[in-house]
């Protein structure tokens, strides 16, 4: 069945089953491979995208639920928070293997949009759904604090 998906500001028509996970549409139909498959059951966070500006696990989001909604992927996040996170991630050498990092960045930017100066607990609560097999958690937390300082100006 044809579905209209608004992704990163562009409208796409994709002919896929109603229950196809958004993640598959992004990667297989639209070629947006920055969003990763990790677990397929919303337990790891590697597939995090924004739907109408809020983080969602694309592996458990059927395309049939996205009519009229706006999807943003790691390829297109922008703004002050995204810039600050990118700078802090680079300065802190946060990624190791990097596989989970697009999901980590999406969650970190979402947190900073809501809480300008998050505490360790705020960070833990926002980020604990994003698993990192290289255990870069300490660097992620540190980089989010760094990004928050940058945003403070």
């Amino acid at each position: 069945m044809a579905h209209t998906l608004k992704v990163n500001g562009a409208t796409h028509s994709v002919d896929i089953d109603d229950d196809t996970p958004l993640l598959w549409a992004l990667r297989d139909n639209l070629g947006l491979t920055g969003t990763k498959f990790g677990c397929g059951v919303a337990q790891c966070g590697a597939c995090t995208v924004y739907v109408d500006g809020k983080p969602m696990r694309s592996c458990v989001t059927p395309v049939s639920t996205l009519e009229g909604r706006e999807v943003t992927t790691i390829e297109a996040i922008s703004g002050r928070e995204a810039d600050a996170v990118q700078k802090a991630w680079t300065a802190g050498d946060v990624p190791q293997c990097g596989y989970c990092q697009s999901g980590q960045v999406m969650s970190a930017v979402a947190l900073l949009k809501e809480i300008k100066k998050p505490t360790d607990r705020d960070i833990d609560l926002a980020m604990n759904g994003n698993i990192c097999r290289c255990a870069t958690y300490a660097r992620i937390r540190s980089a989010i604090h760094d990004a928050a300082r940058t945003l403070e100006g």
Partner: peptide
């Protein structure tokens, strides 16, 4: 839920049986 990790991060408007969510 908490900022950045709300219920809707994983739970949509319907059961998603293939993801058990």
């Amino acid at each position: 839920g908490a900022p950045g990790m709300e219920c809707t991060t994983c739970h949509g408007k319907q059961n998603v049986d293939y993801g058990r969510v």
